[in-house]
Amino acid sequence: MDVSILLFYGLATIIVFFALAVVISDNPIYSALYLAITMVTLAFVYFLLKAFFIAGVQLIVYAGAVMVLFVMVMMMFDLKKEKNSFSKGKFANFIKVGSAGWLCGLIFASIMLSKGMLPLANTNTPQAVADTSTKELAILLYTDYIFAFELLGLLLLLIAVGAVAVSRIKGGTHE
């Protein structure tokens, strides 16, 4: 038994369990906390895949900022357990869940059937050092993807302005 098998199945079980809990839980605050656990565990899966910088960013951006924001907003609303948290209609629900399951099965089948079609690189090369792989990432980001990167900056600016415009209070707390 290899350690990586144990690690992968352990992490995968945690991820799937808490992802299910996000969808099933009645209380949205618990949902958000479960999602936070899922994100942190996913960061450790990225560590397994040797994407160190992405793992760190996942911890900072998703677990540390986005989910904290979600939890904070929900606690501000002080949401209680919801009465009708799920959509109604037995037939419609059957179709919804069934279609999701069908999609899942389709993807699985395609993964199985496409075995060997993608030329895989040898992943047993000496372990990629975090620093150099991050450097490669940065160089790529500022050369090949520079326009996309600038566009992202623009998008973030627009989003910041938009969020302030949407949520501003008449009168406001500041002059």
């Binding site: 960061a43 760190g56 960013v57 911890l59 900072i60 540390g64 620093d131």
Partner: peptide, 15 residues
């Protein structure tokens, strides 16, 4: 030891 020291520490402590 974590190769991405700073990023890891910032991420974990933000939890």
């Amino acid at each position: 030891e974590v190769g991405i020291g700073i990023v890891f520490v910032l991420g974990i402590s933000s939890l």
